[in-house]
């Protein structure tokens, strides 16, 4: 450490810099392959269109905050989608929003499940739901949930509610199930004539529903179902 005149030899040591530089350049290239095992087909900058969201995505790529910005998009999606006021405007963009968010955060399963559930069972856009799920399965080959969901959507096409119900039941049983899934499940039960099961679901919503609207909806639905059951009982006797 205590060379008498370190200033002089370090200035001469500048000759060392190119050698070290080559070393670090080599390591940098090697690490690049580790970071991006498959090189981009297209740069996110190139994929940028004129929307703010797309610009934000490019910035996220460029600054190394992909996951963070992905979560921001995700929060936006559930915000917009939870609000009926946006039904006319924003809901039409649900697929685009989900695909942006999953670009940034491809391993975040909730985007696919939420998006597919909403697209397929609520908005009846089967194509888009299937496309989103296929993307999710490609990015997460181990996620069985996505495969079930894709299957359920296929059944939806055949209008065979009995095939959809098990998948919906499993989805609704998860702690992170989106609220409108119960809605869908209860309605499907009702369609196939399983009124008791439907009532059970609505009772659950009435008890634990997150918003007033949901609880009011549940109360209305319960009244409706009780009326149906009563009529049935009367006609049976």
């Amino acid at each position: 450490m205590s060379a008498p005149d370190s200033g002089r030899w370090v200035t001469k040591g500048a000759a060392l810099i190119p050698v070290l530089f080559v070393l670090q350049a080599y390591l940098s290239t090697r690490l690049h392959e580790w970071v991006h095992p498959t090189s981009f087909e297209a740069s996110p900058v190139q994929r940028m269109d004129k929307t703010i969201a797309s610009t934000l995505r490019a910035v996220a790529y460029l600054t190394g905050y992909k996951v963070l910005v992905g979560h921001v998009f995700w929060i936006q999606i559930i915000q917009y989608y939870g609000d009926d006021d946006n039904a006319a405007t924003r809901w039409s963009q649900l697929y685009d929003d989900c695909s942006l968010a999953s670009d940034l955060n491809p391993q975040f399963i909730s985007i696919y499940t939420f998006g597919a559930n909403a697209l397929a069972f609520h908005l009846k856009r089967i194509d888009q739901a299937a496309r989103l799920l296929e993307k999710g399965i490609k990015a997460n080959p181990d996620a069985q949930r996505l495969k079930y969901l894709l299957a359920a959507i296929g059944y939806q096409n055949t209008n065979n509610d009995n095939l959809i119900i098990p998948v919906l039941e499993e989805e609704a049983g998860r702690p992170d199930a989106p609220p409108m899934l119960f809605n869908i499940l209860a309605n499907t039960y009702q369609r196939v004539g399983r009124y008791q099961d439907s009532i059970k679901v609505w009772q659950g919503v009435l008890k634990d529903g997150q918003t007033d609207e949901l609880r009011i909806l549940a109360a209305q639905k319960l009244q409706e179902l009780y009326a149906i059951l009563k009529k049935q009982n009367l006609s049976n006797h």
Partner: peptide
Amino acid sequence: ILSFGSILQIFMDLGLA
């Protein structure tokens, strides 16, 4: 409060950022 689904993942990602 707002979000659902993989909340732990969000906590961790936000924290790291």
